[in-house]
């Protein structure tokens, strides 16, 4: 059953179209990623879904309800962590969580959430005195305190140090088992790779790709990259002449070769034939990062190409 269904969503600020004909659906219990560069319209999109902005066109259903009506049942079913939102400076962490818990009919125990998000020691700290990462974690806690069916988390690990980020990811993975559906907005590919079941990539308000993180990475034509330290120096032309090799670069004693999927075996065989062995070998799979850059870069190039023609 789809918990979130978006069809033909449009939103414009004046002349500028920010979200353009976006459609997707999210299943119960899924962690769904909305990826895209800054200014792609991700936040506007999720604010429409969260009922914080009026859409200009299309339909949205969240747990069977239309966000535009902003009913109490809708607010109970949905938790939102906003990118830029603060609390009064002199509010303590524990008080904030208890206040927000009091808004919901069946809240999560505030103390348990604080412990899980590593804020147990900060429960008596004023909001203004929290570090960026702690504020972020509190914000996640506030989004989850109402035990929502669906939670929208906008850029939730931005500004967190790696350890804090992994803590938040662990929490979200635990949440997955409880059946809550998460809509995760991110420009952080490692996060999407680790957590998301499916992702969409948004650029200039349009969906330019929709797949699983692995599928997305695999479908993008990105070069395979290998690097190694050869046992003796050799003429780069030996490798450059191979059909699978696109480029050879050496820096110091290490040589980096990019090429097709078969580049690694082709290079190793060619060097072996000349009695050169390959040491400290490293082969990089194309990652979601590469896919992201390739996708958004391609849509940039297409736009640049289209512009002179339009003139």
């Amino acid at each position: 059953m789809s918990v979130i269904e978006v069809a033909g969503l449009r939103k414009a600020y004046g002349e500028r179209i920010v979200v353009d004909d976006v459609s997707f659906s999210v299943e119960q219990g899924e962690i769904f990623g909305v990826l895209g560069p800054n200014g792609a319209g991700k936040t506007t999109m999720v604010e429409c879904i969260g009922g914080l902005r009026q859409r200009d066109g299309g339909t949205i259903h969240v747990a069977g309800m239309d966000p535009a009506e902003e009913g109490v049942a809708f607010r109970n079913a949905l938790g939102i962590q906003l990118q830029e939102s603060r609390l009064p400076d002199k509010m303590r962490v524990g008080e904030a969580l208890e206040l927000y818990a009091s808004f919901y009919p069946r809240p999560h125990a505030p103390d348990d959430l604080l412990e899980r998000l590593g804020l147990g020691e900060q429960r008596d700290t004023y909001f203004a005195k929290l570090s960026g990462g702690q504020k972020q974690r509190l914000s996640v806690a506030l989004a989850l305190v109402g035990n929502p069916k669906v939670a929208i988390l906008d850029e939730l690990t931005t500004g967190l140090d790696p350890a804090a980020r992994h803590d938040v990811w662990d929490l979200l993975e635990e949440l997955r088992s409880t059946g809550v559906t998460l809509l995760l907005v991110s420009h952080f590919m490692e996060e999407a790779e680790r957590l998301c079941d499916r992702v969409i990539v948004v650029d200039r308000g349009r969906i330019i790709a929709a797949d699983t993180p692995e599928g997305l990475a695999a479908n993008v034509v990105a070069d395979q990259r290998m690097s190694f330290v050869p046992s003796e120096s050799f003429d780069p032309a030996i490798l450059e002449s191979l059909p699978d090799v696109h480029a050879v670069v050496s820096s110091g004693e290490r040589v980096t070769v990019t090429g097709t999927d078969n580049v690694a075996s082709a290079v190793i065989i060619a060097l072996h034939e000349r009695g050169i062995s390959v040491g400290r070998l490293r082969v990089d799979q194309p990652s979601l990062d590469d896919a992201f850059v390739a996708l958004t870069g391609a849509s940039d190039a297409a736009r640049r190409a289209a512009r002179p023609a339009a003139r």
Binding site: G50, L52, V72, R75, N76, L78, G79, I80, L82, E84, S85, R86, L87, P88, Y100, F103, Y104, L142, A143, G146
Partner: peptide, 13 residues
Amino acid sequence: EMGVLKRLRTTPV
């Protein structure tokens, strides 16, 4: 100005 109200809007209150 600080977004406290916007945050509150996401709740049933």
